[in-house]
């Protein structure tokens, strides 16, 4: 049994007369421990897919099973609990709360799982150490560089020890050097056994993951291979930054 099982999922937005099929009959499995990228051009439906996978959004049609739970049968409360315990999100724009310091930001998911203050503190520091940011614990997000903010966001995604991490264009807002460091971090986490889904429009970034799913116009592209995406050359170069 795969960690995530997506079956015939469609997401349809209606804007007046117009009907937008953001996702069109998508089926896919994600196994435990996989490092996988979802790749496709802008507007192809990657984020929509990720939000549905991450229980932030519900599909118009189709079913999702996550860690054995049929998501469409779950209530809002249960979905919140699933997001809290089983899923970690990393966003392009970091999405840290500006009024809280880094440590408090990392503690945030644990507040919603009712973990005591001491334990929260300990685990948040531990997570920050794992992303090499413990020395910035008392800083506000605005006092950090983009890369540091993204590492704080990754610490936040890790802190509740989720079953799966979704990262939506995590390097989209970073310079290539910093972006590479972030990818490096994901690779390290993957090697440590984490299940990670990397969403990107950039084939070079997708090249770091062993498995890729290509999305075009809301559909899973039938032929996914490196030659088509021109990634063989990237792969041949050995992705030197990593």
């Amino acid at each position: 049994m795969a960690l995530v099982e997506l079956r015939n999922v469609s997401k349809i937005y209606r804007l007046g007369e117009e009907e937008i099929r953001a996702l069109d009959d998508v089926s896919l499995d994600i196994e435990e421990g996989e490092f996988i990228s979802i790749i496709g051009p802008s507007g192809s439906g990657k984020s929509t897919l990720m939000h549905i996978l991450g229980c932030l959004d519900s599909p118009t049609q189709g079913t999702i099973k996550l860690d054995g739970v049929m998501i469409q049968n779950a209530g809002a409360r249960e979905l919140a609990a699933i997001r809290n315990r089983k899923i970690g999100f990393v966003f392009q724009f970091f999405n840290l709360l500006p009024k809280l310091n880094v440590l408090q930001n990392v503690e945030l998911p644990m507040i919603y799982s009712g973990i005591s203050g001491k334990e929260r503190h300990r685990r948040a520091l531990e997570a920050l150490e794992s992303v090499d940011l413990a020395n910035r614990a008392r800083h506000r997000p605005s006092q950090l560089s983009g890369g540091q903010q993204q590492r704080a966001a990754i610490a936040r995604a890790l802190v509740n020890n989720p079953r799966i991490i979704f990262a939506d264009e995590p390097t989209g807002n970073l310079d290539s050097h910093t972006g590479d460091a972030i990818l490096q971090l994901f690779r390290k986490l993957s090697q440590a056994g984490r299940t990670i889904v990397l969403v990107t429009h950039d084939p070079e970034i997708a090249a770091v993951t062993p498995r890729r799913i290509e999305i075009r116009d809301g559909k899973v592209a039938t032929r996914v291979d490196l030659t088509l995406a021109g990634l063989d050359r990237v792969a041949a170069k050995g992705a030197p930054a990593l």
């Binding site: 809002a76 919140a80 997001r83 999100f89 999405n95 936040r156 509740n160």
Partner: peptide, 16 residues
């Protein structure tokens, strides 16, 4: 709006 979205994404329930 953004703060509320972030809180929900890390697991805040409606009641929270």
């Amino acid at each position: 709006v953004r703060e509320i979205g972030i809180r929900k994404s890390v697991g805040a329930a409606t009641v929270d």
